[in-house]
Amino acid sequence: MPARAAGSPAEVFWAFLKLGLTAFGGPIAHLGYFRDELVLRRRWLDEAGYADLVALCQFLPGPASSQVGFALGLWRAGPLGALAAWTAFTLPSAIILMLFALAAATLDGPLAQGVLHGLKLVAVAVVAQAVWGMARSLTPDRTRASIAVLAMAAVVLLAGAIGQVLAIVLGVAAGLLWCRNLPIPSSTPMHFAVSRRLGGAALGLFAILLLGLPLLASVAGNHGLALFDGFYRAGALVFGGGHVVLPLLEAETVARGWLSSDSFIAGYGATQAMPGPLFTFAAYLGAAETPTPNGVIGAAIALVAIFLPGLLLLIGVLPFWNGLRARPLAQAAMRGANAAVVGILGAALYDPVFVSAVQGPLDFALVTAGFVALVAWKAPPWVVVLALGCAGGMIGVAS
């Protein structure tokens, strides 16, 4: 496998723009799109190298599919290729969600409110599907299922970001104690043109921002800085990406009074109809929040902040990954952390997603139908969004 850039940033940009406009279905589906387009059709790298890259990005906190895309751009065309890949894959859905946030404030009347309620029901079905799928893959035994339950209890008993961070820490500790005897998957070494010095600098910057931003935001009293801090922390602490960021973002926005729970859930439902990474939900939240800066500036701040920690971690770990993933303790810690992620998402499915959306038997029936369509019929998420949005609109008009 080549160890140097073999393409141009423009080539990377157009390849990922196509993916950013057409890759529906969440992070697991995105990895399938990447494989079809970049491994099988364009032959940028082989199957073994791609599998190893996916394993690395699933090991780290942050948006796994965006990290894979960033790394593929780096592999293909160097640093400019990495930036081109992230920009092209992220901006299409981010721009649409920002515009939706700006328009949602002006929506009124039974039809509009009914559609927004339908989007909230979509969020219930989609998060339930995520919990179901992640539980099957990340908690396949009694030990990890028990870790998930303990993590759920931690989140329920200690509301907000503190409970979620504690759940991850407990998951890591439990993994180190009880998940050390499982086999380590084989790997194919993959070498990027990232020096250990650059990797160490990226890890140092990640830690400085994670620890320093809360202090700086509290001293400065500036909402833009507080917004960046909240979304940076959410991106830094979420394992599994995608739907798992939901409870962290809820704690950083709704719990702090920056926007209403109804607006949060409606925006999350709309995000399910978008191609590209689910982390672009941050663009909606930054634009829709009440304090200033909001709108376009708020969307830009939130979007950069939520992606930055995952990309810094990726750059930081690339030079050390081949040695790190061979260590049994590292694998055990990640098994425990992944099990805790299932518990965190299960708690979020109940509150705020279910309790704020399902208001009666008809809502429950629609959510169940959406869940069955996603899980049993393998319907694309945008189809479920369209169906439940229309159903919500009709119910709104009829009532």
Rank of each mutant, 00 (worst) to 15 (best):
R43I: 12
L83T: 01
T87K: 01
G81K: 14
A105R: 10
Y33K: 06
A104Q: 10
L91W: 01
A77S: 15
A55C: 04
F70Y: 04
A55N: 02
L19M: 04
A29I: 00
E11W: 14
F24K: 01
C57T: 10
M98V: 12
W14C: 06
A104L: 13
V12H: 13
L80P: 10
A71I: 02
C57D: 02
E37T: 14
R41F: 04
P61H: 12
A15I: 01
A88W: 05
L38K: 14
L80F: 15
H30A: 08
A84K: 05
F24L: 01
A82V: 08
A64Q: 09
R35H: 13
L80N: 13
F34M: 06
A103W: 12
L102F: 06
T90L: 10
V54R: 09
F24A: 04
L31S: 06
G62Y: 08
A15C: 10
S93Q: 10
L72D: 08
R76G: 12
P61V: 11
A29F: 13
A64L: 03
W75T: 04
K18T: 04
L74D: 07
F70V: 00
R76Q: 13
L31W: 05
A29H: 05
A48P: 00
G25W: 00
I96E: 03
L102M: 15
A103F: 13
M98A: 15
L17A: 06
V39K: 01
A104C: 12
L80M: 11
G69C: 03
F70T: 03
L91V: 15
W75S: 03
T22P: 00
Q67Y: 07
G26K: 09
A82E: 07
S66G: 02
R41M: 00
A101M: 05
S65R: 11
G25E: 00
K18D: 05
A10L: 12
I28A: 13
S66V: 03
L31T: 06
T87S: 15
G78E: 11
A10T: 15
P79C: 11
Y50M: 09
A64C: 04
W44Y: 09
S65T: 13
T87C: 12
F16G: 00
A29C: 06
S65Q: 10
F59S: 09
A48K: 12
P61T: 13
L40A: 15
L56S: 11
A101S: 14
W86Y: 13
F89M: 00
F16T: 03
G20V: 07
I28W: 01
A15E: 09
G20Y: 10
L19G: 02
